[in-house]
């Protein structure tokens, strides 16, 4: 059995590496997060001005998409807990 020359082995390894990289890139591009996917949990529409809990009416905060938010590093935010309550206009 004839041995493959060293240059052929190196070229094969390079081609395999390039194919793997190109394949990964194609897969990632094809599986971007769908921006129109429904949010979980559902978000209250921003247009809602008030909400009611146990018969009491609370003012809803203005839509948070605008304005300027500044938080010092000492303030911890979380995505894993639902708020028990909110600060709001009254």
């Amino acid at each position: 059995m004839a041995l493959l020359p060293a240059w052929a082995l190196k070229a094969s390894a390079a081609v395999l590496t390039l194919l793997a990289s190109a394949g990964s890139a194609v897969y990632v591009d094809g599986h971007l997060k769908n921006p129109s996917a429904p949010l979980r949990p559902a978000v209250v529409p921003a247009a809602s001005r008030t909400f009611t809990i146990a018969g009491l009416e609370f003012a809803a905060s203005a839509p948070a998409s605008g304005g300027k938010v500044h938080l010092e590093p000492s303030v911890q935010a979380t995505d894993s807990q639902q708020p028990l309550t909110s600060t709001s206009v009254s």
Partner: peptide, 26 residues
């Protein structure tokens, strides 16, 4: 880890902190 409180569309964990909102639309 702190009380989960809605603030500017985020959930913050507040510990020994106050929060308030002032506005003119309500």
């Amino acid at each position: 880890s702190g009380w989960p409180v809605g603030f500017a569309g985020k959930t913050l964990l507040l510990k020994d902190l106050g929060a308030a909102t002032s506005g003119t639309r309500y």
